[in-house]
Design a protein around this nucleic acid. Structure first.
Lengths: 331, 331
DNA sequence: CCACCGTAGTAGAACGTTTTACTTCCCGCG
DNA sequence: CGCGGGAAGTAAAACGTTCTACTACGGTGG
């Protein structure tokens, strides 16, 4: 393996000069710099990142810990993260907690061992202690799609209460007076907050929030949505259905159409997330769009700013507003 | 920051012994080991991965370079990779080439600097030279969803020719005699090979492969599928349509239904990939299922076996067969 | 009683960078 | 002519592990 010493010998300079060419090219006379660069190319030298990290005391690596890499939501976030990181020469270590605290802990430990510069995380539980441990090791943490645990910390989230409110307000504005909320497990923060928003919209329209019919599915999949729709049909259809995500909504849509229920004439329907397929479905689906890619980009920019400019960095709590996309299912 | 020396001092042993506790606990007397472990917990020691990598000469990190992290296909692959890596204590560095050779090059350089143990890659071009450079640096490479470049290399792929053949054979078996192939850019290997398979199926059924009507879309999205369907309608519908992926197929389906064409009565329709939405669509979509998650798992297992057992490791070229999933769109 | 062995642990070099303090050399100025 | 100072580069010490060679010590067999 060719090291900085080999390059130095080949170019007739000292290792320190090679290091300077690599890290502060301005400090080296043009002629020498060219000689060193030629040597680097000739020998095919690649800097040893670990040695550099060890000596410099910090790496050019960040960690990304998500709850479910299979969910298009997180995938888009990851794309935003990866783009920014790659633009700035940072590597991204990916961790998928798959909803398990154990796995999340394992991943965080790996990140700590790698002395990552910082961590972007959508925490799977509500225990801030584990993140405190990272901070004690000098690793910055930015929360993604989650409100901040504390003031001296950056967080980027989307207003789920506001999203739920807007969705149901839209349904009510279309004339619906009875609304059902098909949700995933109510252990999930997002599901709970969207319900709160839904209730608020009912209240604002002069309806009793207690009349919001809540159907809780075990998973947030299309199949679970079909089952929920069967429940709805059996117990009497509402005029509108609001689903906690698009997969549930697509399942509901399918079951309703099969049962001969017309959408939106008989029942209006809203999803959440605005995944690609929402627009492509046979009756195109109204949904709440979240700026997922931006979420990833901005979280990463905040994190790297916090790492690279610790003295000027101002911690921010950013709350995006989701955008209502009205399509055929609520015409 | 607490180092191995602090732990050693606290436990009254030498740093070497702490290292032994960490890496070969069997070599240390139980009493001493416990003392050291207590010190580790008390001080909150976390091993410095870079120092370890530097001295040991290898890291516990692998690289994953994919073409499009937004595509559910790669997402599932990534989930498989992450699961295996995490089980074996490896970290995964994620790279998204987004179809650009430049970005892929940048990512590979970052991986080389990190001295990753190995790289899993779905190459975005057909230039094996860049991968050769990794091998020269002692980094193993396993190709994912791509046939091997050379015999002394592992590769895990899915039989796209076979998949195309099976799909079209299925359409022909349902009685269709004229078939259209809606594909993405024919610069993409998968699109080309699926077409070859389609042609082969025509030939096998005694039809002229030249009669396969090929519609090439610029992108592989639902919107592009809708446009392709408009072309088909304008120029006379075939009895069956085979699409190079599910997103295209969903777009075709939607456009056909809107135009009053019945599926499958008037036109039979097949997609490819069997993404979740294929089953959830209003007319559920027949598709070719690929073992994506397994692809990621097995590729990672091969890579780590190659790294950890270089002497016993046997290079493998694994070719999965896709599975035909018949649903309503081809009943 | 001595040579030998195995076990448990230690000392210290090494890994490849970065960085600090230092040396040269040359230029301009009083 | 001497001196200060900047520019360009060097030597060597770190960074935190791992690993090799070595010591110490008790037990065992001849």
């Amino acid at each position: 393996m060719v090291s900085i010493k080999d390059v130095a010998a080949h170019a007739g300079v000292s290792p320190g000069t090679v290091s300077n060419v690599l890290n502060r090219p301005g400090k080296v006379a043009p002629a020498t710099r060219e000689r060193v660069e030629a040597a680097i190319n000739e020998l095919g030298f690649v800097r040893h990142g670990s040695a550099s990290t060890l000596r410099a005391g910090h790496s050019r690596t960040i960690g990304l810990s998500v709850i479910d890499i299979g969910n298009p939501f997180f995938t888009e976030v990851a794309a935003g993260v990866e783009d920014v990181a790659s633009e700035l020469g940072y590597a991204v270590i990916l961790g998928n907690s798959a909803g398990s605290q154990d796995k999340e802990d394992r991943n965080l430990r790996v990140l700590a061992e790698h002395r990552v510069r910082g961590v972007l995380i959508t925490p799977s539980g509500e225990d801030p202690a584990r993140l405190e441990r990272l901070r004690e090791h000098g690793i910055s943490v930015v929360l993604v799609d989650h409100p901040a645990h504390r003031p001296d910390q950056c967080a980027v989230a989307v207003d789920d209460v506001g999203g739920g409110r807007a969705a149901v307000a839209h349904l009510l504005a279309k004339g619906a007076r009875s609304v059902a909320y098909v949700t995933g497990p109510l252990t999930i923060r997002q599901c709970v907050e969207r319900r709160e928003g839904a209730s608020a919209a009912m209240r604002a329209a002069g309806l009793d929030p207690a009349d919001l019919r809540v159907i809780e599915a075990m998973t947030m999949t299309a199949r679970a949505g079909e089952k929920a729709a069967a429940d709805l049909i059996a117990s009497g259809l509402p005029e509108a259905v609001f689903c906690a995500n698009d997969l549930l909504a697509l399942g509901v849509l399918r079951a309703l159409l099969r049962a001969g229920v017309r959408v939106p004439e008989d029942v209006a329907l809203m999803g959440y997330d605005d995944i690609d397929f929402a627009a492509a479905s046979t009756v195109s689906l109204s949904s709440m769009r979240q700026p997922t890619y931006q979420l990833g980009r901005i979280a990463t920019e905040l994190l790297l700013d916090e790492c690279d400019n610790p003295e000027t960095h101002a911690h921010q709590h950013i709350m995006f507003q989701p955008e209502l996309i009205a399509r055929e299912s609520t015409q």
